[in-house]
Design a protein around this nucleic acid. Sequence first.
DNA 1: TCGATAGTGTTATACTATAACATTAATAAA
DNA 2: TTTATTAATGTTATAGTATAACACTATCGA
Lengths: 155, 155
Amino acid sequence: MTQPCTEHKECISKAMREGERVCQDNDQRFTAVRRRVLEIIWETHKPIKAYDILEKLSDSAGKPPTVYRALNFLLGNGLVHKINTLNAYIGCTHPREHAQCFFIICKVCGTATECCNSALNGIIQETAKKHNFTNYTASLEIQGVCEACANSPPS
Amino acid sequence: MTQPCTEHKECISKAMREGERVCQDNDQRFTAVRRRVLEIIWETHKPIKAYDILEKLSDSAGKPPTVYRALNFLLGNGLVHKINTLNAYIGCTHPREHAQCFFIICKVCGTATECCNSALNGIIQETAKKHNFTNYTASLEIQGVCEACANSPPS
DNA sequence: TCGATAGTGTTATACTATAACATTAATAAA
DNA sequence: TTTATTAATGTTATAGTATAACACTATCGA
């Protein structure tokens, strides 16, 4: 369930097409920096840190604000999510479907996978309602050991 | 449900008693610094930032490591939780009951309330299982507007 | 073509957290 | 009771995360 996709190039190109599409829909500009940052984020399925993005970017240009601006743009348009427990960023596999995503993260290999599901959404909604909260967003991050890492011999 | 307790001193003294108890159980020392930091955290039901604790502490002593050490001690013993979306810390209302707590946080007044419930636990467990994850911990933070803030006239 | 707006470059700095080592306090053993 | 050992704290320095502020450039609409 959580192993890397077999044809990762597909992921990247799909993500870029989604980016294109979302920006069009939202009447936003998918500029070179934003595009490049999204590509870098999609190079793996592990959350990546802002300063690591910065490094990969700096063949050409790049200071922290450049990266953070791009990140905030991508976050704002749902193309990327922030993993708060790690201060890191990861691409969203289905922007345009919903605003919030939940993640399950292997603390051994670092891979993060979306684990959104309607049961979770339902309970969270119920919880918010019970507390009379409105206008909410939720951040759920589950950290554990994935099957592959659990099975791999201790090095 | 989320309004501040009427007799807040009760909260504080209860929390301190719990601290005492937990440290005893765990064979840990509830030192002056740790005690003071826990008190400061319990002054409100809003998450507090490490450097704000530091300020309140510094009538006497205090550099960042002092605070972070105390925080890590308290976190490790379940007396305090970290709110990752805010980089802030809050007291646990029921240490010894379970390791992980979920929070619902008003983004207007800043108050955070635990919203752990077994339905949530169940779904999260199920989600972890479905992804074949073991040995997991979960962080859930719901941010919204509490009833009081929703009803209070815009200033 | 011009003006307005959005995006980027650049410098500086704020905020969050820990490493490393010296010192002191508490506990246990001789 | 002294001493050895361990745990906790003090202290300095620095790493890691993020934004403010302002100058400059590119884009788009009038």
